[in-house]
Amino acid sequence: MSNAPDHFAAVVLPDGVQKLTYERDVKVENAGTLTIEREDHTLGNLVRMQLLRDPRVTDAAAPYLPTDAIATALRDLNAEINLIADKLDAALDAAATTMDDHGQYR
């Protein structure tokens, strides 16, 4: 019918493509390129900003593998997201009561 790509092409990993590839830099120690397939700014910026919180990343003095840095960033992000989920549960419990009292919002 047409040569348009499937609309899920931006979401589903094509056959034979790795979700994640890592290539060590050939010249610089402690550097490398991590490529994540079928993700966008949502995850990319989240991981980038979390990496910048790690002094072992920003100081660039001590030997520190990029893969370790990213693993740490992802683990810490996961912990933060779990905290947000817990806070949301508590906040929703509180919010539900307010809504019952007033019947309608606005």
Partner: peptide, 14 residues
């Protein structure tokens, strides 16, 4: 490096 002070509150639901 976890932002363990993260908070979500003041939920208003419609």
């Amino acid at each position: 490096y976890v932002r363990d002070r993260v908070q979500l509150d003041s939920v208003t639901l419609g």
